[in-house]
Design a protein around this nucleic acid. Structure first.
Lengths: 344, 344
DNA sequence: TCGTCACTGGAAACCGTTTTCCTTCACGAT
DNA sequence: ATCGTGAAGGAAAACGGTTTCCAGTGACGA
């Protein structure tokens, strides 16, 4: 593999000159620059990442800390890995995956990555209202940016879909169609239990909807076990006063829910209306679900920018540790489909 | 951040001794070892990744090269990222994501990662029968391991589900139930077009099934556009001699297919039997699909081992560039569900 | 008594960059 | 003629580890 010395020799200049040409941090005469550039292209030279990071304390890598969901695999994780990888690439960053090993030890891999400077900053997914990782990274002076909206808004830069408004809007759409008994199917209960911000804020929005919209909103936690989920749905639909509409914050379960309801003779939207909130990948046989999409690309771009700014700020002593962290709260955008019908 | 010198000073030894204690590459007396270990724990010392890789030419990182599918996001990609991250972790590796930027330039990010030694080896996903990335990495002397079964089996170490046998087995299961007209729904046509190994070998298996099992097997490419897919299905089901069974190698489309068929009045398994081949994440309302699962965890473990061996071999001049590359072809395992009924 | 070994552990070279100093040269002002 | 100034680029010192030497100490057989 070619080193900077090889390039320097080929171009007839000193290694430092090559470095300056490549970083552009010093004025270089046009002809030397051309000679160096030619040598670089000729040799296919790329600076050694280890050496560069050793000297400059920059790795051009972002660590993405993924949690395991209760069920192990987090479907939305895949979309964010792609989204972040693309957004980070535009800023010149690569993405390093940090997943917790099998079980327990949620932050061990992350701490190792931070302490040994594998990355310049960490992007945290699956953020909890009081997330211990934030304090841990702060203790290491390691920049972070969150995908999630924690209780302490100024603890770290963050971005998120406004889940509270999303839940509210989803119920409002149903209320506007005349539905007075709405079942809000929240995220899986493990996520509620660990205090994932999207879970907590979604439920909060549903509660506000009940209070502000004069509707009866029944909040039901979803389950990673489909059979258990269907039992809970059955209990509601078997009741004396069954819901006429469903707002679902667990979109991965929707294909199953639709089939299960169909097996009971319940059709969407004939018998029950449906609004989905969250990442909604697959097609459903042409059924056009009314929904609020999770803006993965937008969030990825935002969190990348926040992370990059946090890296800059950490390098620059004046700006570091400012009073309040920047954030970007994304308002919901409702996509009108064909799954909301007027209430009977 | 603590350096090796800080640890050495705290333990009252030389830096080299700390290094030896940590790497275990030299005998150290029990008491020195204990003193060093105590200092390490005390200071929370982790060796700087850049410095370590600079000297030792090991980064303990695997690059995962993901392709974009025709539709952009590759659903199975997410599962492999998790699977590989976990498997790699057990071998002491972290995983670096290398996705192609927006469009084109399929190998540019990968080549940069290799040339600047961001990683010790690359794991390639979305492998094509004649994959140009393999030759590119060989030219750089960069170790690779493939998730996919390319035309030249000895070009690089690889692992894969035996898609040909899987397709064959899926049709055989239907044939054994008496079905003589089987529709084999292959992968999306972009994947067939670019020669993805799973696409090509799946179709090959379906063709063998037709020849060996005395069944009529109609191979239909799937489409990333659901409407187009349903048009193709309709054409088959509207024909004079419609299929009585479906083998589907595009599992992400199955929820939609089931709904679409149901809208035509076609029920599974009453009117048509179904076998799925591939990664099958979600629940389908309690419908227990007969299927051959993609063994993501097993493949991740295998490819990690192959990659680790390739790294060792590259370091060891004697073993490098041996005659034929190792591989691991995983036989299909059929999971019997309730979606195959006897033919009418 | 002396050379030879085994066993520990330290000193120092080295990995490939970036960055801080310096040197050189040309040119205009004093 | 001397000096100050600015432009261009080179020499060398880090950065934080790993690894190759080398040194000191007892033990032991000749």
């Amino acid at each position: 593999m070619a080193t900077i010395k090889d390039v320097a020799q080929a171009a007839g200049v000193a290694p430092s000159t090559v470095s300056y040409v490549l970083s552009g941090s010093r004025k270089i005469s046009a002809e030397t620059r051309a000679a160096v550039q030619a040598a670089v292209d000729e040799l296919g030279y790329h600076p050694n990442a280890g050496a560069r990071s050793l000297r400059s304390t920059r790795t051009d890598v972002l660590a993405l800390a993924l949690p395991l969901s209760g069920t192990g695999y987090l479907p939305v994780g895949g979309r964010f890995m792609y989204g972040l990888s693309e957004a980070a690439g535009k800023h010149g960053y690569l993405v390093l995956l940090v997943t917790p090993p099998g079980s327990g030890d949620a932050g061990a891999g992350l701490e190792r990555a931070a302490r040994s400077r594998f990355a310049d900053a960490a992007v945290l997914m699956g953020v909890e209202m009081e997330d211990p990782r934030v304090a841990a990274m702060r203790a290491l002076d390691f920049p972070v940016a969150l995908i999630g909206h924690p209780a302490d808004e100024s603890a770290a830069p963050w971005t998120d879909l406004d889940w509270e408004e999303s839940a509210l809007a989803s119920v409002r759409a149903l209320r506007d169609a005349g539905h007075r008994r709405v079942l809000y199917l929240a995220t899986v209960e493990e996520d509620v239990g660990t205090g994932r911000t999207y879970s907590v804020r979604g439920i909060r929005g549903a509660a506000r909807a009940a209070a502000e919209l004069a509707a009866h909103v029944d909040v039901c936690h979803s389950s990673g076990d489909p059979a258990e989920l269907y039992r809970r749905l059955d209990a509601r639909f078997d009741s004396a006063d069954p819901p006429t509409a469903l707002a679902v914050q667990h979109p991965a379960a929707i294909p199953g829910i639709l089939r299960h309801l169909a097996a009971r003779g319940v059709q969407v939207p004939r018998d029950v209306s449906l609004v989905a909130v969250g990442s909604f990948p697959e097609d459903l046989g042409g059924l056009d679900v009314t929904r609020i999409e999770l803006p993965v690309a937008e969030m990825s771009a935002a969190v990348t920018r926040l992370a990059a700014e946090a890296v800059e700020a950490a390098g620059d002593p004046g700006r570091a540790g400012g009073d309040s962290a920047p954030h970007r709260l994304i308002p919901p955008r409702m996509i009108r489909g064909s799954t909301v019908a007027p209430a009977p």
